[in-house]
Design a binder for these strands. Structure first.
Lengths: 242, 242
DNA sequence: TAGATTGTTAATCGATTAACAATC
DNA sequence: TAGATTGTTAATCGATTAACAATC
């Protein structure tokens, strides 16, 4: 139907690279899922959950693919990495498939998320409803500004970033979202890593360095707009002569 | 050094798909740049700009690659899509290269951005400093809530989304950022497209449909966290038996 | 000339698509 | 049995990497 592309995010992770040995003993269980497929599985999961919400019990690869904006070929291939949970000639049971995808993605236990930076973006993220409903608990929010420390944000009070390590420890945080200026991002990132957090999502517009074993993802608004600009410009100038 | 991956964002664009004819007459000018390369070019551009800020005049592919977190091979290959702006045996002149990348990305003229949704996220985006400095002017922000319409956000006043078409027209908006709930995203998106905007960045957690010729990019916080969860879980369970 | 570094080619690797045999 | 749809295989396509000839 229309071309669907993955692009954009940088993930620095040493977890993909070494196949980690272990010659996958049973079925699709211990297997590596290709990064592109992981990203799409989250989309299928969302589509399945809205089907579930409206009471749909079964779905074919064809319709789930359409809801997700991919080809049915891609969808079936992606699902094959998770396992074999459909019925030929029939389709997939929505709830059953949803559960297995969630399990494959590691969404069965709850994740505790701390946000560093209580500026506009940090506050927006802390209050964002989409997290709790998907098994992500925001358990802390930090800022360096003493005028902001102690303020209420959603259900939380802003902690002093000076107490970062202690609060991460006490709350059992296992994921951190960095919503802070480029200038301080690397040093805070280092402290977060040293404190034992191995999953970091950064909104800071800089390349951060993390050691092996730490997964870092990056979201950058300016980058997104620049990519849009490239496409818009191409559309306007279909082929300018030098 | 470490594995660098592109993943994550969905771009629905029909602009990639048809090579658009025009057998590229001169050099690399009218050529298609592969999506993965476009995303990285924005990173190089940022690195070049910080080099420029600290007064560095020349840089080799090796060091620029390191700053950007890619291999020098990838970097040179990416630059080759833009043109040939280095000197063998010497390297690249920072300012010169920066300008050419900016031109290739279509960042030479200013883009006018409107934000739809003046909730936490919309406000955070409107006040985000990274835009102006990169040639993106935020010219309008909208909301449907009459309690919010007329409020001040940064330099702007919140417009009524009822006046969407008129304001987009008057401000000359050519990019829209959707920062609104899933439920209303598609209908607002349709209005934006009908108003003639062809570049849309959506933060709404739904698959949006856009016609051919419109470029849509999507950023999704919950998806990002789910991808982190997948990696974290893998790290914990190096190969669980069934 | 000797050393350095680009731009490009060819080889590898991974992701997408099409097609179809298996099977409900 | 006939129709439908999965799961998988093989073919295509695109992206990354390594290597090196061109050249400053």
């Amino acid at each position: 139907m229309d071309s669907q592309r993955d692009a954009t995010e940088q993930t620095v992770t040493s977890l993909d690279s070494p196949p980690q040995a272990l010659p996958g003993p049973t079925g699709a269980a211990g297997k590596q899922i290709p990064p592109a497929a992981v990203a799409r599985l989250t989309i299928y999961l969302r589509a399945l959950n809205s089907l579930l919400a409206e009471g749909t019990e079964r779905v074919s690869s064809e319709s789930l693919a359409e809801l997700s904006g991919v080809s049915s070929s891609t969808l079936r291939k992606d699902l094959s990495h998770v396992g074999s949970y459909g019925t030929r000639g029939v389709g997939y049971e929505v709830q059953y498939l949803s559960r297995h995808i969630a399990a494959a993605l590691g969404l069965t236990h709850d994740w505790k998320v701390a946000i560093v930076g209580a500026g506009n973006l940090g506050k927006a993220l802390a209050r964002y409803g989409g997290f709790e409903s998907r098994g992500f608990d925001v358990v802390a929010i930090f800022d360096a500004d003493q005028m902001v420390v102690g303020n209420e944000v959603g259900w939380l009070r802003v902690s002093d970033v000076a107490d970062l390590e202690a609060v991460l420890e006490r709350t059992g945080t296992n994921m951190v979202v960095l919503a802070l200026p480029a200038a301080v991002a690397q040093s805070i990132c280092d402290r977060v890593v040293t404190a034992g957090v191995r999953s970091i999502l950064s909104f800071a517009p800089v390349m951060l360095q993390v050691p092996d074993g730490v997964t870092l993802r990056k979201v950058d608004m300016a980058t997104e707009l620049q990519i849009l600009a490239y496409h818009a410009q191409r559309a306007q100038t279909p082929g300018q002569p030098e």
